[in-house]
């Protein structure tokens, strides 16, 4: 474990709970893409199947449980409890256009052609594009609530911190995972546009609105 990965994981945890609290407190999921949340739930479920078969540490197992439970809870709040506030008219990204190609790629490019490893690879590839429905929804509505932009900032920062973690681990542990690094770069690059808007607008107390 290193500081980059720890802060990254905590940033990830913060993002998930900021979103969960926003929906729970405001009793509304306006401006939030349910499709992205479904993809994140899929990412965690396919990635953490080794939860019971492969004990790494208490921290690792605990975080896996928290990530799965909180993301499933978010999907539940969006599609069941506060379904009436779900903005399906703007959440129109065709996620099958993400899941199918990513599924195919996971079969073709992986470290080990075993079910668990292919699912882990699928999860890594899917996570890199899972935010697209959310970014697409913001581009359609033209703006995002400030709390939603904080959620996105924390979520985007987590994988950027993981990139630093991989640099650290490469030099100090000789650890390198090309699949995770490439997917992590794609994932972080997708946030660049948002990071620019967040730093130039939200940091100065303005609302995040995309140029019309």
């Amino acid at each position: 474990m290193n500081i980059f990965r720890l802060v990254g994981d905590l940033s990830h945890l913060l993002a998930i709970f900021v979103l969960l609290l926003k929906i729970w407190k405001s009793r509304s999921c306006a401006g939030v893409s349910g499709k992205s949340q479904i993809l994140f739930a899929l990412v965690f479920i396919t990635r953490y199947l080794d939860l019971f078969t492969n004990f790494i540490s208490v921290y690792n197992s605990l975080m896996k449980v928290i990530f799965i439970a909180s993301t499933v809870a978010t999907v539940y709040l969006m599609y069941i409890k506060f379904k009436a506030t779900y903005d399906s008219n703007h959440d129109t990204f065709r996620i099958e256009f993400l899941v199918v190609p990513v599924g195919g790629l996971a079969f073709l490019v992986n470290h080990d052609f075993t079910p668990l490893e292919i699912l882990w690879t699928f999860s890594i590839y899917l996570e890199s594009v899972a935010i697209l429905p959310q970014l697409f929804m913001i581009s359609k509505t033209g703006e995002a609530e400030t709390i939603t932009s904080h959620y996105l900032f924390a979520l985007g920062s987590y994988r950027a911190l993981y990139l630093l973690n991989w640099i650290y681990r490469y030099y100090f542990e000789g650890y390198f995972d090309l699949i995770a690094v490439v997917a992590g770069c794609v994932q972080t690059i997708l946030y660049c546009d948002f990071f620019y808007l967040y730093i130039t607008k939200v940091m100065w107390g303005k609302k995040l609105s995309l140029p019309a």
Partner: peptide, 10 residues
């Protein structure tokens, strides 16, 4: 790459 205990990152 896989180390003995599978993937150790979240």
């Amino acid at each position: 790459q896989e180390n003995a205990q599978g993937h150790d990152e979240l």
